[in-house]
Design a protein around this nucleic acid. Structure first.
Lengths: 139, 139
DNA sequence: TTGAATGCAAAAAATTTGCATATTG
DNA sequence: CAATATGCAAATTTTTTGCATTCAA
């Protein structure tokens, strides 16, 4: 992970254990709100971190492009590793299930938005809501 | 607007001036956070409403399918008329500009998600982030 | 009349900020 | 050593809740 260090340094930022722990927690969780991430960090055996540090670390990691976030629920942001952002997110309104779909599923959409509006869409940031197979059948 | 009244009654809910005013404010704004909606309501000449009423009205109208919301910024939800949800939303990360695109631009995406995961996507709830033409050129 | 909705104020969440101190580079 | 980050606590901001009162049906 000296890669992390270099990316940080390249931007005049520093590598701290806190940032490493936050990044690791995001990786462990897959998806998590700042709150859940703080809890996960707290359970990694090295003690809890103040929430403010978690927020600031997430900001830094995000600025670096290492993590991204989407709005899985309609309240708090949910962070994930950037490498994880090779998918767009599907969120079930019924049960909260979170699924993924390769980004190329949105190619047509991205192309149209570009053609018609000159807008450069970053679909990996999108959470598409709807109903998963199970909830769909139940209703 | 007796239509609104009937839809409410059909669900055991009631038509109140507060709900009408909130709905009107959403229509006026196009897009708005609860806060902005409260401000817009307050300026309609009939006095301000407590925020709690605004929140509860938005919930009721949403439950009724008259308004929907997306996460335009990464903090607060932005509500819009349901009829407005014939578009998906594009949000510029640079300047906050909010654009629209007809839903059919996402047809392919919706179809793939359905085929592969059985997920019924409601794209009108999605906000796709990216860079608008202007911000794109600036960077 | 009667249950649903409001108004108000207080409680809960969620996020940010100031600043002295500790750390990285 | 200098600049960046942390820790901690307090301040904001955003949303929810309890409850007596009002109002639509």
């Amino acid at each position: 992970m000296s890669d992390l260090g270099e990316r940080l340094r390249a931007r005049g930022k520093r590598l701290t254990t806190q940032r490493e722990r936050v990044l690791a927690a995001v990786g462990r969780l897959g998806h998590g709100t700042p709150d859940e991430i703080a809890a996960s960090v707290a359970s990694d055996g090295a003690g809890a971190l103040p929430v403010s540090t978690v927020y600031r670390s997430l900001d830094a990691l995000q600025e670096l492009g290492l993590v991204g976030h989407t709005h899985v629920d309609h309240r708090t942001p949910s962070y994930h590793l950037a490498e994880h952002a090779t998918h767009l997110h599907l969120v079930c309104r019924g049960c909260g299930w979170v699924g993924e779909m390769p980004l190329d599923a949105a190619d047509e959409l991205v192309a149209r938005v570009d053609d018609e509006l000159g807008f450069a869409a970053d679909v990996s940031h999108a959470a598409v809501h709807g109903l998963c197979r199970t909830c769909r059948e139940d209703s």
